[in-house]
Design a protein around this nucleic acid. Structure first.
Lengths: 230, 230
DNA sequence: AACGAAGTGGAACAGTCTTTCCGGTTCTGC
DNA sequence: GCAGAACCGGAAAGACTGTTCCACTTCGTT
């Protein structure tokens, strides 16, 4: 199988009605926090396919504990990335507030590409949000209007072509993020610039590309597969 | 494991010196062909991670037979895609021969994106070629000069910006191919057009995008994960 | 301090997928 | 048509994960 594409991770139905949450015992609460911290790191490094085993080890608890606290993987992912998506929204709003809308858009693309390169889990969650998974629908619904505002501002200023939408921006970002290797920020910027040149209404000449022409070896950075631990 | 990212598939060392190949028995030769045909289909549909089990079943032979004929996965992949890469090279040369270099480049990008969307295995092999895997080095070395010629022609005609190389074209193609869902050729064309607008030396106005503005649901097509059989 | 409920860890179980192995079959040369 | 080598199929072994379960520990309460 696909071990567990975020597809499977995400597809679990949102669990029942909010059971009158009796507070956890103090030790349980502490473990829960340890697990979340560990999961954040492990997911960032390995993506959502990382096993509960690994997270448990990183948190210093038994697997059983992880399963008891987060019966479905989706529970853990959801809890974890609710906050991260907030950070993305905040960054979009900041970009939309930039007095130079073009700079705002470009800055956001650069930031978003880097954020996803640095955090595989985030990249997968954002993709899942695009796919309409229930568990991250809330985050997406906060994200979309923000991007929409960013797009509108840039279009109103006459710098962003009128025939693209906020969805296009999301897809463009996902595409660029495929230029994966986290260590090659210069390469990522190169393709952000290229895509921005495509998004512009018009231009007299190419915007200078930030990185030296990609060498043959740089192809290695593309579509980097999920690297496996160890 | 990663089940078997193409990473693992590809990393096997090229097997010893060409053992004086005694011809196979006739039935063995027939089975070998059956296996290759089956593998082509299975890999196209599921990517290189498909198990030998599945290929054997599709070919109507036992697993043991597959293992005997192709002791390492890399052997099978290599044999299979040697020819497919030839088809890609041919398409590039055709594009480079187009009297309108810009149309040639655009046509190739469109074709390449579709080919990779329709054949997951091909997409993985091309990515592997970029990563410098030994087993597909020969194919890559045939591909690179062809793309280089395509790039040179377009640049000589003054339509393709001078600061991109054949590697950039490969990366751009890989990025676009992430807009995965094979059934959404219109969406893929949309982003090919966007990227082409970025690759152009200059332009007065945006090239009209072929597809209707992507709807929210279309995000689902991005970064489509390896769908698992059944 | 002592009792019960809540929580814990990790061994055991259950799936998958890969790889080996060998009794039986098919081909080829003579 | 026979001998023997080459080849075949698929059961079984091995290597991994994901998940469950329960004897034991810890916590909160009285």
């Amino acid at each position: 199988m696909f071990r567990f594409g975020y597809d499977a991770v995400m597809s679990s139905v949102t669990s029942g009605p909010e059971a009158a949450a009796r507070p956890l015992r103090r030790d349980a609460e502490r473990n829960r926090a340890l697990i979340l911290d560990a999961a954040r790191e492990v997911y960032a490094a390995q993506g959502l396919d990382a096993g509960f085993d690994e997270i448990a080890r990183a948190a210093g608890v038994g697997v059983g504990t992880v399963y008891r606290r987060f019966p479905e993987r989706g529970d853990l992912v959801q809890a974890l990335f609710e906050q991260e998506i907030d950070a993305v929204v905040a960054r979009v709003q900041e970009a939309a507030a930039d007095p130079d809308p073009w700079r705002g858009l470009g800055g956001f693309l650069r930031w978003g590409a880097e954020a996803q390169a640095a955090d595989r889990g985030l990249a997968q969650v954002l993709a899942a949000a695009g796919k309409g998974h229930e568990r991250v629908a809330a985050g997406r619904d906060r994200l979309r209007p923000a991007v929409e505002a960013l797009v509108r501002h840039a279009q109103a200023a006459g710098v962003l072509r009128d025939d693209v939408t906020e969805v296009d921006i999301g897809i463009a970002l996902a595409m660029i993020s495929q230029v994966g290797d986290a260590s090659r920020g210069d390469l990522r910027d190169r393709y952000v610039t290229l895509v921005l040149d495509g998004l512009a209404v018009r231009r007299e000449a190419p915007t200078p590309l930030p990185a030296a022409p990609a060498s043959e070896d740089d192809l290695a950075c593309v579509v980097a597969p999920a690297r496996r631990h160890r």
